[in-house]
Amino acid sequence: MSSKAGVELKGGMYTFMSLKLHTSDTDIINQQLADKVQQAPAFFKNTPVVVDFSALEALTDEQFDANELIECVRRHKLVPIVASLSNKSSPLGDSIAIPLIEGSVRSAATQKSTEKQSSQEQTEEQNEPSSAIEGSTISREVEFIVKAPLFINKPVRSGQQIYARETDLIIMGPVGPGAEVIADNNIHIYGPLRGRALCGVSGNASTRIFCTSLEAELVSVAGSFRMLETIPPELRGKPAQIWLEDGKLRIEPL
């Protein structure tokens, strides 16, 4: 838990702004981008964007230079990091000089599920609802990914291990001594916590553990941990929350 590796490879999900192009006319794009950027120059400066070409794929007959469109985006101090196409192997894809990904923002959920199948991941995740707000020709699309929490409505027994990947863990019942409950997000236990609880295990330091009776063997937030002996006796058996503040683990009654 304490040994620090020099490098670490991790899978993660990030939210990026997506710029969907509905036209190949550089004049229109220039004009509308300039208007947008002017509204909040600081916000847009050096912001990485995904350039969504999916609406232009149908226009294959019409000759246009995709790289010129990307260049046009760069001129407005945006940083195109990747081009998004509904089909990576379309002729348009060959001409684009930046990395490609498949799928558009709107189909994020389906794209996720195909990725999931290919990597053969088995977690208790639900389909993430994604919402896109589409305005004028050039619109800022914001993606909200909300994963359903992992919900356990029976006691977690000694020797059992429950892991909520990329989401919250909610347990209705006791967590027995020798049991381990782990989550990338928060852990909520409506019952006594007698085993180990580790939240934010992939590094999220703003996660917390909540339980209705703190009798834990060990609690950990993003790698900082405390054993039962170091938990103040007056807090034992009481409803409590545990979180990280300035790198220090804090335990307070609820």
Binding site: P155, R157, S158, G159, Q160, G176, P177
Partner: peptide
């Protein structure tokens, strides 16, 4: 009691 808790987990799985 702890071993019983463990065996209850095994019964469940």
């Amino acid at each position: 009691v702890r071993d019983s808790d463990r065996i209850l987990g095994i019964l469940q799985s």
